[in-house]
Write a protein that binds this DNA or RNA. Sequence first.
DNA 1: CAGTGCTCTTGCAACGTTGAAAGACAGTGT
DNA 2: ACACTGTCTTTCAACGTTGCAAGAGCACTG
Lengths: 333, 333
Amino acid sequence: MATLKDVAQLAGVSPRTVSNVVNDQPYVAAETRARVEAALAALDYRPNQLAKSLRTGRIGLLGFVVPDLAQSHFARLAAEVVQAATARGYTVAVDQTHGDIERERRLIQLGPRGAMFDGAIFHPEALRAEDIEHRESEFPLVLVGERIAGDHLDHVYIDDRAAAYEATKKLIADGHRRIAAIGLRRADYARTAHLREEGVRAALAEADGVAAGHHQYVERYDAEDGYEAMANLVDSAERPDAVICFNDMLAMGALRRLHEHDVDVPGDMALVGFDDITEASFSFPPLTTVAADHAQIAETAVKALIGRIGDPGGAVQEYLVSHRLVVRGSTRG
Amino acid sequence: MATLKDVAQLAGVSPRTVSNVVNDQPYVAAETRARVEAALAALDYRPNQLAKSLRTGRIGLLGFVVPDLAQSHFARLAAEVVQAATARGYTVAVDQTHGDIERERRLIQLGPRGAMFDGAIFHPEALRAEDIEHRESEFPLVLVGERIAGDHLDHVYIDDRAAAYEATKKLIADGHRRIAAIGLRRADYARTAHLREEGVRAALAEADGVAAGHHQYVERYDAEDGYEAMANLVDSAERPDAVICFNDMLAMGALRRLHEHDVDVPGDMALVGFDDITEASFSFPPLTTVAADHAQIAETAVKALIGRIGDPGGAVQEYLVSHRLVVRGSTRG
DNA sequence: CAGTGCTCTTGCAACGTTGAAAGACAGTGT
DNA sequence: ACACTGTCTTTCAACGTTGCAAGAGCACTG
């Protein structure tokens, strides 16, 4: 692998001049530039990014850390983050925590992998507010997803309360009269779940003649949990005629249970999810769901992170990203 | 950020000794080690990976390059690759080509991002055999997916021909008598498609009284294409009673078309896909599909790549990974 | 008591790049 | 002839680490 020195020798100039040519500095004589460029081509010179980074302090690498890349919500986010980062000259390294709280704590403190990154975008799963409050590191970090950070870290989020409120309103408008939610959490750090719950309750409280079903608590947020939760509802004496699931995987599981019980969706029961994962549009019926704008989240997070890298001391910011209800076959209308 | 030098000064030893402590070298006196460790803790020393890499030549970073991370097949692969690489002390950087052939060509030659990686795992989309034959770079690269490399690059693949053969055999065994395929490609570089086609034809040729349906050519491999292709089959005079789609997204699109035409699956028509993406288990009915072992592919590719990094000149190898038919509701039996 | 071997520690240079600043040269004005 | 300006080029050191080789101290050997 040719270095600046090799090229310099071949072209008969100093390494510094070669560097100037490579980096398009002014004040290089046309004749010299030509000679150097010939040498560059002859040796097939490619700059050593490592050495460059060591010298300049900028690595051009962003971390993107999620619980599990295989979950389509995170995969789509990752795709958009890579896109947005690439457009700005950064490469993205991915890491998975699998919800391991120790790993997440370490990450918050150190940044991923001994901070071989300029900064990171992090979607925590198990982390709590207090973990973030005690953060000492200066490592540039932007949080996505759960809104647990208080005022301590930059954060990109959607208005979960409003989204749940709107989804519930729509079910009421469609004529449903008993509405349950699947996906509540008891733990007080599960902010997102609580906000969605609030939204649902607010909408129900405003409506006349609409009852709340037996809201279902779950441990994880996967299809299995949705399948189990729906078991409690489908044969209940007070079976709801509409159910809001706090993510799409829960809804997928719930839907499977409904199929097995020959419950017509949305005739007998309407179903709404959250996240708009790709599975949602291929279920039968396709799922009505609250879609955050993945591209906008990614774009915002990357921009925020790069801004933070450039200004480590600046004021912490929150970024609100829009959402919308994607109406498909699992609801009427 | 504290450096070896700072720690050395505080501990009253040379930087080299601190390095020895950090890297657990033998021949450090217990007393010295203790003093250095105290200093390390006091200054919260963390090694600069960049400097280390510059010196040692090993970066600890693997590239993983796919057409589009949002596609669940690639997302799952990515998740497993990250897992396997992490277990071996490597970090994974992800890049997307979106099927851009120029980008893929560049990648084959240079490695991603000016080779700021130790090596890369690459799932090409548009690349052809001749692009690889003319490769000059020594950059450690392992291919996954399309088997286009000939003997020029390490490659991890499944036996597509056998997989398609087995799937077709199963349909025949289930009593289907007219079997069509969706997903054929005209271009001669689309090896995977051709192999699957061969497998289907071989199984059909062996069977008595089983006809081939009108095999469908497609441009891309997405739901839209499957939806369109099925339009040609569903109302045809010679409607097949079973269809093999060369990936799951094609099958998803086909399934949607069947729903719209009120065709019972699998009663009136059975459906088989390839890849076992998560969507496949949540469609209605859930999709029977050929599943490659993602974990095994990832594990094999990472191992192969790390091996290649350690031995750039070694003989090129091919790795065959197992597959199996996941039988779900879209087929009988 | 020189020679040998063992443990522990250090100094130096190097990885490939760039920032800072000085040097070389030609042209211009006085 | 001299200072000054502007263009072009180079020198030097530094980023933080580790490989190499040598040095220091000590005990044991013959």
